[in-house]
Design a protein around this nucleic acid. Structure first.
Length: 437
DNA sequence: TAGACTGGCGCC
DNA sequence: AAACGGCGCCAGTCTA
């Protein structure tokens, strides 16, 4: 099966995920929003006080004028770059100058709270149906083959900050059910190991080592920094980008990159070959044959060409990861439906009724005297969300064990790489409070 | 008033 | 100038 055939088989599954939706606790979100509203008012007042007058905190251009003109903070001294219209006021850049004025910390907090309120807390309850479920639309129109989610986007629900976790708790399981969350462990780095056949990577994954720890030991840096470097590799690393992320100089970053490729020489070779081949053919390919043209590679502009190189490196990793999870979705759906058919057929002792059931969540005709004439099948494990390397299921509590086994087996074994594929599974009553199985 | 653009930021 | 990959959504701003 190639990448395009995978997408075809995925279509009805995405359709169904859309129809089923995910349940949210709208009251909880509204309460949280109200509390946040009060806090935002206080922050706003404090900011005006510190600055000496009112202005629109949500306006980057007004803020830039105040910081870099009124307060005379020198952006160049702090390494803050100019945007098209003014100097940057992004969170990372504000952090560089937060010691220079008391308002800046408050502005950063205001930004965080306001973002979460406006993007999640307020819109989500309005999008819920009468059963309090929201229905995202998945599409496959990305350049790498990943899915995207919109109206609402359920692939960027907060998780990182404390408040973020609180928001995630609003995504809940139906009564009698739990959420089952299965996510691939470092799938893209495993794909990198597979493509490059780098012995150090293969052995680390083969022995079940923590790959970020391995990189940390190889480079003599801490795990957090190693993780950043590993991700950088997947994105088509540059010394400048890495230096920004690690808050080190580009020279130091280049040093780390050099060490990295000494530690993983076959990966270095793979990356070089991938770029070279992409320059020759004009495209790159994923494991299952999805092609992406990269015209940037023949640009006379250095910056554009460099971008093309990063795309050439990243796309096979990101695109292959997308294919692996799509195949798992297809196989899991098959298995879940098959099991339901079997159990229905068994329970009514009449295999002919199997044909009447096309998809889950439709009305099924049962012989009179069974449980009435019709019944809607809701008491079954259903795939409800996909977040790139993670699948979320809504599962009746008495099916947790068997669904866990099915999901793990299929996600880990549908595609075979030269390294093991590992899946972590957690369950809970909501998306924010999960316990590992 | 609608739409495009910009800066910014949530997620993987 | 200058962003290491992929998305979608927000408010502010500018323009037709």
């Amino acid at each position: 099966m190639n990448s395009y055939q995978i997408d075809k088989k995925l279509e009805p599954i995405l359709d169904e995920m859309h129809q089923v939706g995910v349940k949210i606790d709208a009251h909880y979100l509204n309460d949280l929003s109200q509390k946040l509203g009060l806090k935002l008012l206080k922050l706003e007042e404090g900011i005006y006080n510190d600055i000496g007058h009112k202005f629109n905190v949500n306006s980057p251009s007004q803020l830039a004028k105040i910081l870099y003109e009124e307060l005379k903070i020198k952006p160049r001294d702090a390494g803050i770059k100019r945007k098209k219209t003014h100097h940057s006021t992004s969170a990372t850049d504000l952090a560089k100058i937060s010691h220079l004025h008391p308002a800046i910390e408050k502005i950063l907090e205001y930004r965080e709270l306001n973002k979460l309120k406006n993007t999640y807390l307020d819109p989500l309850p309005k999008l819920a149906d009468k059963n309090s479920r929201v229905h995202t639309t998945y599409t496959v129109d990305t350049s790498t083959g990943r899915l995207s989610s919109k109206n609402p986007n359920l692939q960027n629900i907060p998780i990182r900050t404390d408040l973020g976790k609180e928001i995630r708790k609003a995504f809940v399981a139906e009564k009698g059910c739990k959420l089952l969350v299965a996510d691939y462990s470092q799938i893209e780095l495993r794909i990198a190991a597979h493509f490059s056949e780098d012995p150090t990577m293969i052995s680390a994954f083969g022995r079940g080592h923590d790959i970020h720890r391995t990189t940390a030991e190889e480079l003599g840096i801490d795990r957090r920094a190693a993780k950043t470097v590993n991700f950088g590799i997947l994105y088509g690393i540059s010394s400048y980008g890495l230096s920004e992320n690690l808050k080190i100089t580009p020279d130091e970053a280049q040093n780390l990159i050099d060490k990295y490729f000494l530690a993983y020489p076959k990966l270095a070779e793979y990356i070089a070959k991938t770029i070279k081949k992409a320059e020759e053919t004009g495209f790159v390919e994923t494991l299952f044959g999805r092609k992406r043209e990269i015209p940037e590679l023949s640009s006379p502009i250095d910056r554009v060409r460099k971008f093309g190189e990063r795309v050439a490196v990243n796309t096979p990793f990101q695109g292959t990861a997308a294919e692996i999870i799509k195949l798992a979705m297809i196989e899991i759906n098959k298995k879940l439906i098959g099991d339901r058919l079997t159990s229905i057929a068994t329970s009514i002792d009449n295999r002919q009724s199997v044909d009447k059931r096309k998809t889950k969540n439709v009305t099924i005709d049962l012989p009179a005297g069974e449980a009435g004439d019709k019944r809607t099948a809701h008491n079954e494990s259903r795939l409800i969300l996909q977040v790139h390397d993670e699948l979320v299921f809504e599962v009746p509590e008495d099916e947790i064990k068997q669904t866990t086994e099915i999901v793990r087996d299929i996600m880990e074994n549908t595609v075979k790489l030269k390294v093991p594929i590992i899946v972590d599974i957690k369950t809970g009553k909501n998306w924010g409070e999960l316990e590992k199985i």
